[in-house]
């Protein structure tokens, strides 16, 4: 065991954790919006809209995240037309490509989580709202969404942790996130176990925090029976 290496690599890895957290928070934020949008599309009665939303989630859940990042980062740059538009400013940056890929990926999973949460809301609750003369819009925003959020918290917590692990793939498109820096230190020092313990420890710590925050929220928003 090389404890000196563990101590010297710790600040470097901690610095890289900031990149990981930035990637995670950006993709979770956009992914939640995208997921909500597609979950609402899934509940639409129109069969085409419904099928469209289903195939989106099916494709992104059925293929590895690595393929998705590679298509966006290496693949899209190949289209000549894209290079001339303003989108190229975003798509030439690996940072934004990673965020786009993560957003699309987590959006697919989130839409499934939210859809199933919406579907488990008892029709009686909506009917009760209707019989009180509350408008459909307010029923949706004030009754259905809060209940759906509560229902989907445990599954969404898992998704956050999966996404946090997913951000490690940003290192494959040259970004120096926690895994990227860890790999760099391993390949220069050939001390994989020490670096793994430190980097893995940081990841585990983040998992621990996320897990407990979700647990706290679950308790806070649980129904008073």
């Amino acid at each position: 065991m090389d404890f000196d290496l563990m101590i010297t690599s710790f600040p470097k890895l901690l610095g890289a954790t900031v990149v990981t957290l930035k990637l995670l928070s950006a993709s979770l934020f956009f992914g939640l919006l995208l997921g909500l949008f597609f979950a609402i599309l899934r509940l639409n009665k129109n069969i085409f809209i419904n099928k469209f939303a289903y195939s989106y989630s099916y494709i992104f859940r059925g293929t590895p995240l690595l393929v998705q990042i590679f298509i966006i980062y290496f693949g899209l740059g190949q289209i000549e037309y894209l290079r001339t538009t303003f989108l190229w400013v975003i798509l030439k940056e690996p940072y934004w490509c990673a965020i786009i890929a993560f957003t699309l990926n987590t959006g697919a999973y989130t839409s499934e989580i939210l859809r199933s949460a919406f579907q488990t809301i008892k029709p009686g609750i909506i009917e009760a709202g209707k019989s009180l003369g509350i408008s459909n819009k307010i029923i949706f925003y004030k009754i259905q969404i809060p209940i759906a959020i509560r229902q989907s918290l445990p599954a969404y917590g898992n998704e956050i942790i999966l996404m946090m692990k997913g951000t490690s793939l940003a290192s494959t498109v040259t970004l120096m996130d926690l895994t990227g820096v860890a790999k760099y230190i391993i390949s220069t020092t050939f001390k994989p176990i020490e670096v793994f313990i430190v980097a893995g420890g940081i990841y585990l710590f983040m998992t621990f925090i996320i897990h407990n925050v979700i647990k706290y929220l679950e308790k806070k928003y649980s129904f008073q029976q």
Binding site: I161, M164, K165, S168, A182, A199, Y203
Partner: peptide
């Protein structure tokens, strides 16, 4: 194992 990224395990 479930709290650490797969890629890190593979590098190890």
């Amino acid at each position: 194992i479930r709290g650490v990224p797969e890629l890190l395990v593979i590098y190890l």
